[in-house]
């Protein structure tokens, strides 16, 4: 790691002010991506603004038909939350499959979605459920939040405080993990929501995206059969030594069908 300064603000306002005053500062949430990145000297922030001491940023609550998860809530807490298990079991299962046990004890939902690793799991739930990302200054719809590879709609120094998930009628997430890293080679989140069927795909492309043809087919009939034979084009998909674009395209179909099968 290059040398850096470290601050641990105790209010969101202080954190935002620190970030505003130092454009080379970086937010530290759970650190599960940032710290390995720093260790490899792939980033050189002037200071880390650790959100670990901010009050009120970690926690899970349900308000009517909305599940609200604080940005600093750890994956393990989502995975074993009775509230999540009752309201949105697909999200609990997703959280329980992120990284490994030790990672789930540190990694946070806020850190995951802000990083927008194209192979991360959480972005698929946020997009697939049409969640709303709440920041220190505004609310951003999931469809507007993820803008590209490791990119989001957040402004410089903007801090995510919570994610609001509208509860779907049913939802499921199926992931095909990279055997080495255990990140998603492809992950498909399928949900029948109040505003229609949504299918979000992670791992396959340069960022999480919705699979329109799958949504249309499932809107017509929410059955595994409805997506059988559906093809997602490999044109814009990732290709690497672990999986070609064609294989990823194929997996989208397989996983979508399996996700639907678990809840149809």
């Amino acid at each position: 790691m290059y040398a850096f300064d470290y601050t641990r603000p105790t209010s969101v306002a202080d954190a935002v002010a620190t970030l505003a005053s130092d454009s080379d500062a970086t937010v530290l949430a759970g650190g599960m991506t940032l710290i390995p990145t720093l260790k490899q000297r792939l980033a050189q922030p002037s200071q880390l603004v650790d959100l670990g001491a901010l009050p009120g940023l970690a926690g899970i609550r349900r308000e009517g038909d909305t599940l609200i998860i604080g940005a600093m809530t750890r994956h393990a807490d989502v995975a074993r939350s009775e509230i999540v298990a009752a309201a949105l079991p697909a999200l609990a299962a997703l959280a329980d499959g992120i990284g490994d046990a030790q990672v789930r004890h540190r990694g946070t939902i806020g850190g995951s979605i802000v990083n927008h690793d194209p192979a991360a799991d959480y972005p698929s739930a946020v997009l697939g459920l049409g969640a709303t990302v709440v920041t220190d200054r505004r609310q951003i719809a999931a469809d507007d939040f993820f803008t590209g590879l490791f990119a989001t709609a957040l402004e410089e120094g903007e801090i995510v405080t919570e994610v609001r998930f509208p509860l779907p009628k049913r939802a499921a997430y199926v992931k095909f993990p990279n055997p080495a890293s255990r990140y998603a080679v492809v992950g498909v989140f399928v949900a029948e929501t109040g505003s229609g069927v949504r299918v979000a795909v992670t791992g396959a492309g340069p960022g999480v995206f919705r699979a329109g043809n799958f949504e249309a087919a499932l809107t017509a009939s929410f059955t595994p059969k409805a997506v059988e034979g559906l093809v997602w084009s490999a044109d814009d998909l990732n290709s690497d030594m672990h999986a070609s674009a064609g294989y990823r395209a194929h997996l989208i179909g397989v996983l979508a069908k399996r996700a639907v099968a678990t809840i149809a």
């Binding site: 470290y6 641990r8 599960m32 710290i35 030790q102 990672v103 004890h105 540190r106």
Partner: peptide
Amino acid sequence: DSVKSCTILAAQ
């Protein structure tokens, strides 16, 4: 909680 001590700063 079990964590990887190589991926947490002493400060944290």
